[in-house]
Amino acid sequence: MIRVWLAQHWFVFMATFKRLLATPITSLLSVIIMGVALSVPVSIYVLVENLQAIANERNSPQMSIFLRNDAKQADVDRIRQDLEQNPQIIELEFVTKDVALQQLLEKSELPDIAMNLPRNPLPDAFVITLNENALENLKQLQEDLKGKPEIKYVQFDSAWIERFSALLELGHSIILMITMISSIAIIAVMFNTIRLQIATKHDEIEISKLIGATDSFIRRPFLYFGALQGLAAGAIAWLIVLLLIHLINEQLIVFLRFYEMEFLLGSLSTENGLSLLFFSTWLGWLGARLSVSNHLWRIEPQ
C-alpha cells in the first residue's frame, strides 16, 4: 500500500516536473520574479550578519576593574573569586600594578618621566571579557562592582555597544518586514500562476471528479507545482546572494588594498541556504494551496 502511494506521488511529481519543463519561459519568468523578491531580505540578512561578525570580532565587550591602591592580596583574591563565579564572564585577566607600569613604559613616548616617578601610581586591575548575552545586564554588573569597597573604578564603554546592538535590532526588524513583503509577493505570484493552470486544466479536473477523484488527488499536482517553483525560486535567491557577495568582495579587495588591509565578507552559510530553500518551497506550496482551495470548488461537474 505504501509502495503504491509512493509510486503515485512519484508519478505526479514527475508529471509536474515535465509540465514545468514544457513551458520553460513562463516557468522561468515566475521563478525569477519570486527569486528576486526573496533575494532582497536574504542579501540584507547576510550583510547584517557580516556587520555583527565584524563587531563581535573586534569588540567583545570588555570591562576594566581598577582596585584601590591600598588593596591587599586577600582583597584581590576575594574579588577574583567573585568574578570567577560569574557566568557572564568568559575571560578574566589580572594585571598587577607592576605589569601595568611596564606596559606604560613600553608604550609611552616619555619613558623618562615615567621612570622618574617616585612610586608606581597605577592600581592593580582586572580586565574581564563578557559574553554577548551579558549586554543586557551590563549596567547592573557595573553597579554591583562599583559597590565593593576594594574597587575604586569600573570602566566600560557601554554607549557604543548599546548603540550598536540597537542598530542590529533595527536591521533585524527591517529584514523581518521585507521578508514578509517578499513572502506576500511570492504567494501572490504563485496564486495567480495556479489560477491560470486550473483554468487550462478545467476539463481534466471536471472529468477526474466525475470518475471518483478525491479533492486531495486533484490538488496534488498543483501543490507539487507550487512547491517545485518555490524551491527553484529559493535556489535563484541563493545564487543572487552568492553573486552579490562575490562582486562586493572583489571591490572590497581593491578598496582595502589602499589601507593594506584584507577582509572578505562571509556569504550565506549552507545551513541558512538550506533553510532558505525550505522556506521558499513552503511559500510556493502555500500560495498554490490557497489558490487551489479558492478555485477548485468552482469546478463542479454537470
Binding site: R3, V4, W5, A7, Q8, F11, D203, E204, E206, I207, S208, L210, I211, G212, A213, T214, F217
Partner: peptide
C-alpha cells in the same frame, strides 16, 4: 468527456490512477 491532451492509453488509465492501482 475525453481528455484530448493525452493518449488513449492515458485516458483509460485515469480511473485507475484515481483508485490508487499500482502501475
Amino acid at each position: 468527456k475525453l481528455l484530448f491532451d493525452r493518449s488513449i492509453f492515458d485516458n483509460i488509465l485515469l480511473p485507475l490512477q484515481i483508485s490508487n492501482f499500482d502501475t
